[in-house]
Design a protein around this nucleic acid. Structure first.
Lengths: 245, 245
DNA sequence: CATTGTCAATGGTTGGACCACTGGACCTGT
DNA sequence: ACAGGTCCAGTGGTCCAACCATTGACAATG
């Protein structure tokens, strides 16, 4: 461990072949000016031209199909299904820190709606879960913690109470990034208690079935959270050139 | 075509092998009580037990990795990354018609926020695109059409103007299903013109930078659309038993 | 002209071979 | 004993060659 941390000796990471192939295919789509519905060259040709096995090409297409970018039809060929964001799946997008403002805005869009729906659909069990989460958060804070677990549990309970699988899926896809901003926010002095109070207001609105009130309480809460997160946030210099916009 | 339509002779459709393997793996995860971080059996073993080639098993894992469910580590093995919704990706969720209310609610959550952001960030180019879309929609209607293309172009232009890649990605993931409801809605007598008027109100708010007004105009517009769609909507009986809820 | 049969093109699957990486067992000199 | 190095079995990564299954077009047939 005594050696200086050099740039040259950083761990070299080899990407998987099918990932590289996927990138080339993305390049090809734009170079060849392909539009939705167009057909790709046969797998065998692509394999020959890229100097990889057909297996690797196929793995790429399997992934691209799973992500909804292409349409693989037995006996016909492979077809382009949508162009936008061919290279960046949601996961990849979320990995970039400099997207934090985007994430916070998206979170607000989803959670405000979730709170509104929760106020409409909440059951006795849902309310119990939310209460338990707040109890947990209080206990965490009393024990000297910042209450991240209780916080996460509360928001999750609301998402479940909203009874909307699509929204639940979307918010869960962003769970990891949201967790990061949550930790930042709750580490601010005085924040845990203030957040806990905001949560109680949200819960009260949901419990009484006040949809607009629940939505508004959630919006206020998230704006504060976002504000704190953004203060600590330093945008990274763009590591790639996405000139097109 | 004179033969009676029998149940037995319906076209049999084979799913892809790696999809079946994926389902088995999902079953395995729950049967084996696997939790996050646990390791899967080696690919070779799985291939032998499932009576498929190792290639097919690998294709499954490649897809599962792309969807974020597993972690494939060269030289080590394959590990479970998250349990939630192993079986149902967003795509699969969206394929189910009986989720229409969920889709419409999710759409409202996203598009209302997009309108608000568009009112803040719109450039001259954005406004031109929106105007062009409304022109196209008007032309379609004048030509006897219902204006679906112009409608789609308008909403897309707003999504672009919002300058939020995450939200853009989310709304695009739902583009297909939204298009279906769009067609239904605009097929209603008198709807195309009424929609066009609503669009003009939204555009006016965005153009003047009135964030709250843009959000509210969009909300009103979508509530009408949702209302009409829901009237025609017939929930399908559950085709699967998801008892857990 | 409609129907049927044939066939080339293309994706789907297989089994086996070999390479690359990881982690632990084992050896070795001190 | 211990630190260090070596070796090796296990595991994922890639390739190849062959064959199966499906599709669409075209020729042969009536």
């Amino acid at each position: 461990m005594g050696a200086p941390s050099t740039t040259a000796l950083r761990p070299l990471q080899r990407s998987r072949l099918y990932e590289d192939v996927g990138e080339r295919l993305a390049e090809f789509v734009s170079e060849a000016r392909m539009t939705v519905g167009d057909q790709f060259p046969p797998e065998r040709d692509l394999a020959r031209q890229l100097h990889v096995s057909r297996t690797s090409v196929r793995q790429s297409f399997v992934v691209l199909q799973a992500l909804g970018f292409v349409d693989v039809r037995h006996g016909e060929g492979v077809f382009l299904r949508r162009t936008r964001g061919f290279g960046d799946s949601l996961t990849k997008l979320l990995e970039r820190r400099r997207r934090l403002p985007d994430v916070l805005e998206a979170r607000e869009a989803l959670e405000v709606k979730l709170a509104e729906l929760a106020a409409r659909h909440r059951s006795a069990d849902d309310l119990r879960a939310m209460n338990a989460a707040l109890g947990q958060m209080g206990a965490e804070i009393a024990a000297g913690g910042v209450g991240t677990e209780g916080d996460a549990a509360f928001h999750h309970a609301i998402a479940l109470a909203a009874r909307n699988e699509i929204l639940l899926h979307l918010i869960e896809a962003m769970a990891e990034v949201i967790q990061e901003s949550r930790i930042e926010s709750l580490s601010e002095p005085g924040r845990p208690l203030r957040s806990l109070e905001a949560h109680h207001r949200i819960l009260a609105a949901i419990e009484s079935g006040n949809r607009e009130g629940a939505a508004e309480a959630m919006r206020q809460h998230l704006r504060v959270v976002a504000d704190v997160s953004l203060l600590r946030w330093q945008p990274e210099p763009a590591d790639d050139v996405d000139a097109a916009d």
